[in-house]
């Protein structure tokens, strides 16, 4: 069991306040309902979900750590392995593929020198292959660090985006 008071694991007051606001959405005896949000908030602050962080979140929500691990490993936007500062998740599903996502994928791989599921040596970028992001009308699309969507991608736009992400 992780020690929830450990400094390296402690979440900021801002993150804890965000988690508390999520907990308040659910019945008082159903804190576990907030685990998806809590893991998202923890990941946003710490970069990725190391096992001790998942346990910290489980402890905070008074749920078994294994149940929190199950969630962290089931949903594919959680990172249970280290990722670069900038995670680019490119949708390559059929509607995006029809609009050139595979060319964007090749461009990204060539530009960054890595394949899907890999991180650049300097720890700056991680490239991931994503599934449908529900934005097929604006294809091809990618997500930056799970929360910022970029649409109508062209190789030039990808270059600009990569340059912006220090």
């Amino acid at each position: 069991m992780a020690n929830p008071d450990s400094n390296t694991l402690r979440l900021s007051q801002e993150s804890l306040a965000l988690i508390d606001a999520e907990v308040a959405k659910y019945p008082a005896d159903r804190k576990q309902s907030a685990v998806m949000a809590a893991l998202r908030i923890a990941q946003t602050e710490k970069g990725w979900l190391k096992p001790e962080l998942v346990e910290y979140v489980a402890h905070y929500l008074e749920m078994p750590p294994i149940a929190a691990y199950e969630v962290a490993t089931f949903y594919n936007m959680y990172d249970t392995q280290p990722v670069g500062r900038h995670k680019i998740t490119l949708c390559t599903n059929l509607p995006c593929a029809l609009m050139g996502a595979n060319k964007i994928a090749e461009h990204l791989k060539q530009k960054l020198g890595i394949g899907f599921g890999e991180t650049t040596e300097d720890g700056r970028y991680t490239l991931k292959e994503g599934e449908c992001m529900g934005t097929c009308g604006d294809a091809p699309v990618c997500l930056h660090n799970n929360h910022a969507m970029h649409t109508h991608l062209t190789p030039e736009q990808v270059d600009e985006l990569l340059d912006e992400l220090k």
Binding site: M36, A37, V71, E131
Partner: peptide, 27 residues
Amino acid sequence: LHAHLGYGAYICGEETALLESIEGKKG
């Protein structure tokens, strides 16, 4: 009324998987 954000699982569009997910479980 409250909003609950998913985090990357197509299966949660299935209604009972979605309910499991709101309960804080695998979908």
